[in-house]
């Protein structure tokens, strides 16, 4: 167990992967427990299963880099705008430290990675949100990166796919954060006017400010099985209506039943589904590698 010690001594908290590789075996032991069926899973198998429980189909949360690795063609990803860094515009107590800690823990600069890559040979502009970076909340940098992605896509006439995950707007940046909802939505409007395809893939959880902006604006909205999807947090709803929420409330399945999304796609089929959709929208397959 070579990596075991590193984790428990707090030296290593993340696993880096290169595009095109499946995520490496999680470093904290050989076995893990499924959060849904409580079954004992052999990690190597879970990894080769793209983080999906082989028994019950539960989708484990993935980091942005893991998502890139399992979704895109090998070595096809070029990152954009990674030089945009977060500031503390309100002088919000503790925000600096929080950002630093999130950077250390995730190895990321912010809660989204954007760039260009290929899915099953089809080129697209892409966004991958990472929930472990302050709940993938949207502050100025996330909003700016998404806006630039949409603007670039409108100019280049390349489709956009964003894997969303977020707890909402980042309160530490105050109104600058809230306005990113309007900014990204306006940029989507430009993309839409340019008749360029946008597919949003909602992963667990996609809520609040991100759901109420680019998360729910996809021409096609896909969700991962079981993902929490909604606007208002469940605790707030319970406190308001003073009732227990029905089981399955705000899940991907609930959203599908109520006509809020187009489909639920198992992570193991997402490349194929996205490839087909890109192809049906005039995508031209490029040489892999």
């Amino acid at each position: 167990m070579p990596n075991f010690k590193g984790i428990f001594q707090g030296k290593q908290k993340f696993v880096t992967v290169k595009a095109g590789q499946v995520p490496e075996e999680p470093a904290d032991g050989l076995w893990t427990k499924c959060r849904q069926c409580a079954g004992i899973l052999y990690k190597k198998e879970l990894t080769s299963n793209l983080g999906v429980c082989g028994d019950c189909g539960f989708h484990f949360r993935l980091s942005a880099r893991e998502r890139i690795a399992i979704t895109l063609d090998e070595d096809s990803f070029v990152e954009y705008d990674e030089d945009l860094l977060t500031t503390d515009p309100l002088g919000f107590p503790g925000y600096d430290t929080k950002i630093e800690a999130a950077k250390q823990a995730t190895g990321l600069n912010e809660a989204i990675i954007t760039g260009q890559g290929r899915i099953d040979g089809y080129p697209a502009l892409l966004g991958f949100m990472d929930f472990s970076f302050i709940g993938a909340s949207m502050g100025s940098v996330v909003g700016e990166k998404v806006t630039r992605l949409f603007e670039r896509a409108a100019r280049q006439k390349l489709p956009v796919v964003i894997f969303c995950a977020s707890g909402g707007a980042r309160m530490q940046e105050g109104m600058f954060s809230l306005m990113q909802m309007a900014k990204t939505s306006a940029a989507y409007g430009k993309l839409s006017e340019a008749r360029v395809l946008y597919i949003s893939v909602l992963t667990n959880p996609t809520t609040a400010g991100v759901f109420a902006s680019f998360g729910s604006l996809g021409d096609i909205i896909i969700a991962e099985p079981g993902a929490l999807i909604g606007f208002t947090g469940q605790r707030v709803i319970e406190e308001t209506i003073r009732q227990k929420l029905p089981p399955g409330f705000q899940t991907a399945e609930f959203a599908l039943e109520h006509g809020l999304i187009d489909m639920i796609v198992d992570r193991r089929n997402i490349r194929k589904t996205l490839g087909s959709l890109l192809s049906l929208h005039g995508g031209r397959r490029e040489e892999a590698g």
Binding site: A182, A208, G215, F231, T232, V236, T240, F254, H258, G259
Partner: peptide, 18 residues
């Protein structure tokens, strides 16, 4: 913040207006 508001797509309605 209510059940029916979520069922009828509160987030989607807001995004569309934006």
């Amino acid at each position: 913040p209510g059940v029916e508001a979520e069922e009828r797509g509160q987030g989607i309605a807001i995004a569309r207006n934006l």
